[in-house]
Design a protein around this nucleic acid. Structure first.
Lengths: 148, 148
DNA sequence: ATAGAATAATTTAACATTAAAGTATCTAAA
DNA sequence: TTTAGATACTTTAATGTTAAATTATTCTAT
């Protein structure tokens, strides 16, 4: 989003920070995506497997909430992972409306093999900043993320 | 992307900053998108109109470069904006392979009306940080964005 | 106990996104 | 000058994304 907006000092400061923030995120995501491209996983598919690995089996609606995506989308991502037998649907014990998504053995093996390189990649990219700068970045972006 | 990865101090620091950065960006983008949703513009369509407003008519390949999107995608975004007569294709003066995309009068009017609220929205959201913090954020994210 | 509201997942339609293949045009080297 | 490669845009196929509508089930107030 290239913006050369002729505004006052406050606007220029806000827009400059905004644009750098967006570009940094784009850059980090693009680089991270290279790690799992070889496994023919999309970003959403990787995120779902990661979510199931660290937080255990859950309902599609819970996945949607954690991944910040719409429900219809989640259904399709599950469909595509299920075709490859990386996740499975099982009926919910007490609520017949609901289902539980869990990793298969193959899915668990795949995502566990992908996590260490993924973490290393993020660590490498963030290493252009010092530990103190990383902490500052965390605090600043944390406040932005919860902004109303 | 919820990650509870059991790693060393460096990894935890990098991952925490990374996650906050991604969430902040998601939050900002979601809020900004509300400004042009009433005009039935998608984020890509808005970005293209904004690009043409501030940087003038250009070729699809230039739009792809500035918007960091693939060429095939640009063709479709142009198609959809052209259907609504917000942009137009004209032949390139000297290169018959190329075309030039420009705003129509209606497109110019629309994007000009949308920019002030958009800028105000970003300014408001960034206002949870002080001017000094914004400058710090800009510098830190600028370095991350250009990381190899 | 039952009607209405809420919830859970899916389906559908429209648009977005990428990668790969295709077509047309241009450029530069032999 | 001709040809090979590069460039510019489009098309196609597969997946992703959202919003809205649909179906099935559960919850809740009467």
């Amino acid at each position: 989003m290239p913006t050369k907006y002729p505004g006052d000092a406050d606007e220029v400061r806000a827009l400059n920070a905004y644009i750098c923030l967006l570009r940094a995120t784009e850059s980090l995501l693009a680089k991270s995506a290279q790690n799992f491209r070889g496994s023919r996983l999309t970003a959403s598919q990787f995120a779902m497997l990661e979510c199931l690995l660290f937080q255990g089996p859950m309902k599609p609606s819970e996945l949607a909430g954690k991944m910040l995506k719409s429900g219809g989308n989640i259904t399709m991502v599950i469909d595509n992972l299920e075709k490859r037998k990386l996740v499975q649907r099982t009926p919910h014990a007490s609520d017949r409306r609901a289902i539980i998504i869990s990793l298969t053995a193959a899915g668990n093996k795949l995502i566990e093999s992908l996590m260490p390189p993924q973490v290393a990649c993020i660590k490498d990219q963030m290493a252009v900043l010092t530990p103190g700068e990383l902490e500052t970045l965390r605090q600043l972006t944390r406040r932005l993320g919860t902004a109303q």
